[in-house]
Write a protein that binds this DNA or RNA. Sequence first.
DNA 1: CTGAAAGCGCTAACAA
DNA 2: TTGTTAGCGCTTTCAG
Lengths: 358, 358
Amino acid sequence: MRECTRVHLKHDAEREEGLIRKKVAALAGVSEATVSRVLSGGGAVKEETAKRVIEAAQQLNYVPSALAQRFALRKSGNLGVILPMLPKVNLFSTYYFSEVLSGIGMTAKQRGYDLLLLFREPHEPRDYANLFRTQKIDGCVILGAQDVPSERAALTELQEGGYPFCLVNQRFEGEAYNSVDADQQAGSRDAARHLLTQGFRSICFLNGPSVYSNSQDRLQGYRDALEEAGLAFDPVQVLTGNYSRKSGYLQAKAVAALVRERKIDAVIAANDRMAIGLLQGLKELGIRVGDEVALIGCDDSDLVRMTDPPLTSIRVPFFEIGCEAASRLLDLVTNAEGSGSFDVKLPVKLIERASSAP
Amino acid sequence: MRECTRVHLKHDAEREEGLIRKKVAALAGVSEATVSRVLSGGGAVKEETAKRVIEAAQQLNYVPSALAQRFALRKSGNLGVILPMLPKVNLFSTYYFSEVLSGIGMTAKQRGYDLLLLFREPHEPRDYANLFRTQKIDGCVILGAQDVPSERAALTELQEGGYPFCLVNQRFEGEAYNSVDADQQAGSRDAARHLLTQGFRSICFLNGPSVYSNSQDRLQGYRDALEEAGLAFDPVQVLTGNYSRKSGYLQAKAVAALVRERKIDAVIAANDRMAIGLLQGLKELGIRVGDEVALIGCDDSDLVRMTDPPLTSIRVPFFEIGCEAASRLLDLVTNAEGSGSFDVKLPVKLIERASSAP
DNA sequence: CTGAAAGCGCTAACAA
DNA sequence: TTGTTAGCGCTTTCAG
């Protein structure tokens, strides 16, 4: 036994787990059950005893295996977050995901849950229910869901299995799924109202794909504002991109033409990335945003402070959305009192900058 | 027993796990052990038998519990990713994290590991080793590590415990930790060389905090290039920010002064965000970037295509860094042949744009 | 090739 | 308040 002990540390650690627990019990002069009671704060234990156990554990550097605990409790202790693989196809902004994810992560952590990140490849089958069956997660929040048949099928399976989940930023017509969202409709309505107040009369709307319900919501808000103002809705004024900067850039020609023909004097884009692409395109075509044409983005991401002119945008509380989604979902998972199905809409706020000045 | 069955689904599912396994065994006419052998691809089983088991499982919609499997195998099956809480203090770019994380996620997935996201609050104690002791993870990659005592202590503990981990984008002087990084030194050296080639003679370097080793590396690359060109290193030409846009913005006054005094004719910033802040600040002070002064950023994030003028920047293969880190780490975790400690440096590439035109 | 049985580390009755 | 004991669902010897 004079060999190097250092190299063996890992190996020892592996088999020690079972033994070290016994040692702790012995050192504290109690049974293993009591060790468990103390360390997981369960049953009633004499304070005196508890102290001895804690000291023994500390001394032997023992921590219970979360894996074994969770197995015994038949709970994974994990909150799953399903999200599309980001890179390359960068339609969603990293800003959006970072914020929502941080909110979820912070909340989960506060409530003692771990975060399991589940990337979904674009054309992979969406087998969400299996994540529950295999006991990898106790609940999940789904980001970037789309209204397509395979998604609906996967969600139906979750719902029928009674597996707790929460949609973020997406709604499915005809289904009452738990969800947390920003009030996108109010957002673009406010944006349009703001433009009308500033004296603009013909507003173009650059929307995203309709598989995302929020695209539809934003369009509706825009139409609401027009209607309020007694203005006719003109389909010619609605363009569509795919939420990428490039898709905004590509619409610049069409927008420029409308501007030159005096058909429009302002544009609302369904997200900042498209707004920025459009801004660049228009600049190249010699059209001055904030002067010849007003422009409003959506998300109020960090990007909008970096453009010239800075973009008016609709601030969406992504971090808070993440917090809310995780919080409600965990209420459900833990069966907290007052928990139940939910459909939260968080308010948005128009942040005015130079791009929409009169 | 005529009550609604729907409500009971979840509850049933909970207690069914143990039973359904038996049913599968019965239906296939084998023992539970054989079910296990088939479904986890372990021992040798007659093809005929295997088929029956698989069919039975399918029919009864049975999937083994990953939780129980992992418990039995004493492996969590999780790859941990430790990263600082992003929002609010947005020093790191979301771009960086998204890319690296995606690379890690994709690789982990391919190799059958799940991703456990571990947010570290700014001033929380860094107890990385406990993540292993509690069997939450089998290995971990650490993003945004800093060279401060508490971090060094936490890493030392990992190393001595024989717990597999990998640093990304950070190196600790005097320690041979596993790490994957970009060749930042070559990057800023190339940037400086490029500027010198273009005819610029006095280059200012806007660096980040030195708790990040890559700040030091970048500075060194810059100095190397100056030395090569027989130019003296002048400390006055080195400014420091904290990698945020704002910190770049705040240096604009100092830079403008240097430009006006003809002390410098070009700037290299240690990341894009600071470069963009600086660009905005200089613009406000009436200094034209790409004309009166050249500017180069670092990261080649999606931001640099959105500025005017577009920024020359150093492209860093973040996604690949994530892949490489996860891959090497998992080799270690699974004891793959040829695995061992590593210190990978991935090449970077200067992408020229208008901001550094002669 | 397959079955029986022990055990992974922890929790939770049930007794004492 | 504590100890004893029986599982949790799966893997893995060891026989057959």
